[in-house]
Design a protein around this nucleic acid. Structure first.
Lengths: 231, 231
DNA sequence: TGTACATCAGTGAACGCGCGTTCACTGATGTAC
DNA sequence: TGTACATCAGTGAACGCGCGTTCACTGATGTAC
């Protein structure tokens, strides 16, 4: 644990970071698919085989990048979630979009088409849950404060769906009615659908640039889950 | 135009189809990125260079596949859009999802992360517009029949957004109020967000399998745009 | 209907490229006594 | 504090692979007269 032991470990840590940084740089240029161990090593003036001391395979490097990306997005969202529950919810949405627009290739890495032949390990799941859990957290705050009240009546959930939602709710938000949680899920898919459409070019020709569309949409979606502004 | 001229042309047409079919088959196995001219030619017992007589480059082949995919999805949606406007709208949504689940790699090709280095040409745009235009079409039918009536009041559109929506509306649905068209856009992003999440594995651990979630969600989204069932 | 020419499809070799991963090795850094 | 041994990082060559695309060529199919 002394400084001596740290000397080697510190070097290792720093090179690991350098590798990931270079990988992210290349991600931004050529996308996840073209990312190669050899080109990273070249950029770092290393011999290609030495990279394997740090990441035993290309997939391991990808996994590390994926986890980092989820965490970076999660952190961005958390930092942007300020104010009363509704404001925090909207802030989180804006935070996610802002991060995504700044890091489109990292976004594509985690929300784009799965990389063929790559199987995401369990480790990614907790990182991936960060944003949805953040949204649920503020929805729960709102619920506690009696600031959730949906105007439009929603039809009853079908049996199987109700069971799924209740099961999910047990883990993350036991006090929320299934109908509310269900709507939160819908909004969650809408949020990422909108961001993906924007980044992947599907909005070109309709509402591009999308700042105002986005801002207005998340407001309407907050209404949809029933998030009210406190008086 | 005689049968003689058709002989060569017919052969050309059929081989072109065979190439695309084989390409789609490989798409389903390895994804768009690994799709290679050489492996397609191998599967068809051709010499690799001969493929270039049919598609001058790999990108041209990809473009053809993309346009075919958009059209196949569009056709599936159109066929599933039956009944009164609300039913037709819901049917189109179900049609899209069904097609996507049956052809996940073709779906990923058009709605996943853009392929690095590939620039989609203009030709794809009209094919891509088919599904959203179908949805708008039935929304217009509903409007004509006075079957659009939103229960939850929506906040006024911001200035720039209003301008964008009005501009868009001029081309596709001049009679629809901007608020309605705006909501339709939101629902459009929600629909594909949900499908992408399902296919790309983001719903695992929450509402997977997603049949009931999907069915319920599109119902709520139809309510959200204001689509009413006729009496 | 037959011949002369033009068009097109398929061939096979070649160019030049990049990739992930393994392995036996050297030399530096860390550890135990 | 010094020595003997163990761990680790970086090296460079090699294996075996696949790729897109070009090009000069042969032989078949289509067209014009």
């Amino acid at each position: 644990m002394g400084a001596t032991r740290t000397a080697r470990e510190l070097a290792r840590f720093e090179l690991t970071q350098a590798i990931k940084d270079e990988a992210r740089r290349q991600l931004a240029v050529d996308g996840a698919v073209k990312l190669s161990m050899r080109s990273i090593s070249r950029a770092l003036n290393m011999v290609s085989s030495s990279l394997f001391r740090y990441f035993p395979s290309r997939d391991d490097l990808l996994t590390a990048l994926i986890i980092d990306a989820y965490n970076a997005m999660g952190e961005a969202a958390e930092k942007a979630a300020r104010g009363n529950p509704r404001e925090a919810w909207l802030g989180a949405c804006h935070g996610v979009r802002k991060w995504a627009k700044k890091n489109p290739h990292e976004y594509a890495l985690i929300y784009g088409s799965p990389i063929p032949g790559y199987q995401a390990p369990r480790d990614t799941v907790t990182a991936a849950a960060r944003v949805p859990l953040l949204m649920i957290k503020h929805l729960r705050y709102a619920w506690d404060l009696k600031l959730v009240e949906s105007r439009e009546p929603s039809p009853p959930l079908t049996e199987g769906l109700d069971a799924q939602i209740v099961e999910l709710g047990k883990e993350i938000a036991p006090e929320l009615p299934a109908k509310v949680l269900n709507r939160a899920l819908i909004v969650w898919t809408q949020l990422f659908g909108m961001i993906s459409f924007e980044l992947f070019g599907q909005l070109v020709g309709s509402v591009d640039p999308s700042d105002e569309f986005f801002a207005h949409a998340i407001g309407q979606m907050a209404d949809f889950v029933g998030l009210r502004t406190p008086y």
